[in-house]
Design a protein around this nucleic acid. Sequence first.
DNA 1: GTGAAAGCGCTAACAT
DNA 2: ATGTTAGCGCTTTCAC
Lengths: 337, 337
Amino acid sequence: MSITMHDVAALAGVSLKTVSNVVNDYPHIKPETRQRVVDAIETLGYRPNLTARGLRSGRTGVISLIIPDLRNAYFAELADSVMRAADAKGLSVIIEQSGADRARELEVLRGSRMQMVDGVLYSALALGEEDAHLLDSVTTPMVLLGERIFHGPTDHVTMLNTEGAKAATEHLIGIGRRRIIALGAHEGEVIGSAGLRLEGYRQALDEAGIPFDTRLVCEVGDWFRFEGAEGMRRILASGVAFDGVVAFNDSMALGAMRVMQEAGLRIPQDVAVIGFDDIDETRYTLPTLSTINPGREEIAEVAIRYLQERINNPGSTPPPREHFTRFELVQRESTTV
Amino acid sequence: MSITMHDVAALAGVSLKTVSNVVNDYPHIKPETRQRVVDAIETLGYRPNLTARGLRSGRTGVISLIIPDLRNAYFAELADSVMRAADAKGLSVIIEQSGADRARELEVLRGSRMQMVDGVLYSALALGEEDAHLLDSVTTPMVLLGERIFHGPTDHVTMLNTEGAKAATEHLIGIGRRRIIALGAHEGEVIGSAGLRLEGYRQALDEAGIPFDTRLVCEVGDWFRFEGAEGMRRILASGVAFDGVVAFNDSMALGAMRVMQEAGLRIPQDVAVIGFDDIDETRYTLPTLSTINPGREEIAEVAIRYLQERINNPGSTPPPREHFTRFELVQRESTTV
DNA sequence: GTGAAAGCGCTAACAT
DNA sequence: ATGTTAGCGCTTTCAC
């Protein structure tokens, strides 16, 4: 049996309500009363029961973060940023992995765990624009992360994908590259990281007057290292000439780099490479990898702020907001000639 | 206002208890009654309120995982394994980062979040054997992970560190290496990953009749890539001859590999390298990295099982158990000559 | 400024 | 096999 407010109230000789007021930092309490309560809490080692508080107040102080997979460095780092931002606001974070699986991404939304969190940060990978309406029925406050769904019924925080990819491509063009591979395309995709980033790649080529060549566009399935490696193997096998690679994430860039190095290509002399995400690892590879930093900390901070605003104002439902973070091009050895 | 059991009971024309029984899969319910309740749940879209259930039953179905830092690939992968094992048992996981900071590791133990979880998986990095008594006062069921505290008051799951390091060293000796660097030592440490692994390294040398040379022992602070790189720089600067490296984790091995490659050393021809942890990345570096797989999935599975046993039998307090997982040596290019 | 009472939604006894 | 009753520990009216 644990210590309850009752015990504290009894020891301090006050009522339940007064203890509650002290615990919740209510302003109007006589200093000496407050002190007596604080002492009683101290001597008894009282800790509020958060479950009871949650039941009564309707708030648990817990949010959930739904991401595809923690083993993916980008999401591990995103989770880290989210947990820091949440911690600063006194929130705990339950992480749920969806495995980028459509069925599971939907299941998690309906799952009963949703009943015990105040809000959800939702980073979908398999759902798309056509699923936006499925979010209408979600009553828990939610902030969307990522590029799969725009103009949904909820707040949305993401980076400027097209602009980032354009900047990456311009950077390669700026160091004299003309035959640039786009690694990580998804056929027919318009919305979504792949679609948006390919668009940025095209814009950069257009503005530089470089013709778009479909042989330089490498389509892959998932964005793991393996796929980056496989994609590069296909490029090499095709015999197409190239002198630069814009990979749509760092993992693929690293997989491709390994394949190129095995094939005897020198980076950046023969092929300059730039990735996306600025995962920690890019600082330590050989060569180190230039990349686009998507502003993970800003994403986490803004997402938490939006979520908390929704949580704290359950009545009002202002229209969904959209926040685009600033990105930053980080130049490292893979594009320094 | 959300739908409660009351609403379901009213619609199905049964009592609260019956609804509760159906929801909790109680065995003895007339099939037709059950069906009526199920239908009512369906039409109303009822979801049990987990907070209320938690308050009443004393169990929330949430555990917390306390780890140093998700940005560390080993812990991200451990968290992934833990979440999968927990999910299979219907448990949710709150992750808390301690930053390998002693004060924070202790704070997290006393934190009020502990009041809302059924149990804790605790992976300390800064606490040590001398802090074991601090765990006595923790009433929440707990399973220790890692090597900092043995013979504490709680269950403990870890790998066979000494044996793993011994096997790694023997592997290098087996391919003809005699001057082997031990990368990642902590001066004076006996317990803890560094101490135990250094011991395994010594045992392997002893058994092979190779003299222990302190100039080959490289001490570092944290076990990040940066420290591995710095340690290797010091080794190279010292001018000591060597033909093998046993790194006490993969991150350091990769940092060291990069420095060696920059210095023109070929791996594995000039220096064979083996790490520890089998993080995903080791499969994709150039060369791929041989390593000791610590059996993360087994660690997660056993830890969750132990924890659940403690949670489900709050009365009985059998003595603390200790489980050592099997490790596996994974040979890759960095030790294949 | 503080107290008394009500009840958040659920499950565990104890009936029937 | 199902219904009734009584709280879990807290916050929130509403008094005083």
